[in-house]
Computed example of a mutant assay.
Amino acid sequence: MNAPIVSIAPIKPAHRDSVLRITCDGQALVGLLSEPASGAMATPAPDTGVLLIVGGPQYRVGSHRQFTLLGRALAGAGVPCLRLDYRGMGDAQGDQRDFEQVDADIAAAIDAWQREHPTLKRVVLWGLCDAASAALLYVHRRRDPRVAGLCLANPWVRTATSLARAQVKHYYLDRLRQPAFWRKLLSGRVGLGAVRELLGKLAQSRASAPAADTRHYTEQMADGLRAFGGPVLLILSGDDVCANEFLDRCRDGGPAWQGLLNRPGLRREDLPDADHTFSTAAWRAHVEGLTAAFVRGMPAAA
């Protein structure tokens, strides 16, 4: 006897994706816009969207598709999200550039989004690693009133000295506390190269920042965070050198960084076990939920 055929209705996605064409200084960029599906959310159309800046060298999909999934999750929660390939990355034209050189690309993306969707009044910049740094540099340099909020995940503040300090503090010193390390050292199973590496990191971590760093990009980031008037969501992974470097910078980075973690409007969320890119489904879902709640909880536009 044949089993009855069960008809399963297709699940309608809560988002729809479309390509947004962007031009920056005569060169074509590519944006992927995820929006709430028709009928999924109540009208009127949202007036706030998330512009997801991609850190490099990557493109709009992200590691383990994290940016695609984040954009679609936000759209399903009623928050449109635009993911951007800036010049020289992914499918965009132009020469490759780093996070300190994308101000014009960010502005062009907001311009194009508003032209295609006039109901969009303001954006939240979302960035992981050096994309978070790019967001802070943008608000510092441009003072763009359309930027209403920031979502910063594991911001990049690296210098050779800061990396050495973070490694000594959060990795090497932890190893020195482990009896297994000393057993291996005394038995000869830890090579001289590893010992020399530790001594080198200790010396490098004590180095002073060069005088030319008085207006280093990290100083500009601090200025941007301090002067920005909107709400900020700071997401930090516990198992990540970049996050540890950022926290160290906030504690020991001099007057520009003092008190920034306690600035009004900053909400800090720690994921103690998460890695740099929130690579598990649970970590990713946590970040998606934090971001959606942050954007939907922002005060209404004036």
Results as ranks from 00 to 15, higher is better:
Val79Ala: 04
Leu266Tyr: 05
Gly188Ile: 03
Pro255Asp: 15
Tyr172Phe: 13
Leu152Glu: 08
Ala300Glu: 14
Thr48Phe: 06
Ser187Asp: 11
Arg206Asp: 12
Arg122Phe: 11
Leu185Arg: 14
Gly90Ala: 06
Leu173Arg: 06
Glu197Pro: 00
Gly253Ser: 11
Gln114Thr: 11
Thr159Gln: 07
Trp283Asn: 14
Leu225Ala: 15
Gln204Asn: 08
Phe99Val: 03
Pro299Phe: 07
Arg177Thr: 01
Ala166Ser: 11
Pro13Glu: 02
Pro118Tyr: 00
Gln258Val: 11
Trp126Gly: 02
Val147Thr: 06
Pro4Leu: 13
Arg268Ala: 08
Lys184Leu: 03
Cys81Pro: 07
Asp85Gln: 02
Tyr171Leu: 10
Trp126Cys: 14
Thr48Pro: 05
Gly90Leu: 01
Ile11Arg: 11
Ala131Leu: 04
Leu33Ala: 08
Arg143Met: 10
Arg249Gln: 14
Pro145Arg: 13
Trp126Asp: 15
Lys169Leu: 11
Leu198Asp: 00
Phe67Val: 07
Thr68Gln: 10
Trp126Thr: 01
Ile5Leu: 09
Gln93Trp: 04
Asn2His: 09
Val102Trp: 00
Val61Lys: 07
Glu219Leu: 14
Ser133Leu: 04
Arg206Gly: 14
His286Phe: 12
Ala222Leu: 05
Gln66Asn: 15
Arg83Lys: 04
Arg115Ile: 03
Ala135Met: 00
Pro255Gln: 12
Ala302Val: 09
Met89Arg: 04
Met221Gly: 07
Gln204Ala: 15
Gly26Ser: 01
His276Val: 06
Gln114Asn: 02
Ala45Thr: 08
Gly49Glu: 08
Ala132Gln: 02
Ile53Gly: 01
Ala300Arg: 09
Leu33Phe: 04
Tyr138Val: 03
Gly224Asp: 04
Pro145Gly: 10
Cys24Gly: 00
Gly56Cys: 05
Arg215Cys: 09
Val50Ala: 06
Arg97Pro: 01
Ala282Glu: 15
Arg142Cys: 02
Pro80Ser: 00
Leu234Tyr: 07
Gly88Ser: 03
Lys184Ala: 13
His170Ser: 10
Phe228Leu: 06
Gly238Thr: 05
Val190Cys: 01
Arg189Glu: 10
Ala112Gln: 03
Val61His: 14
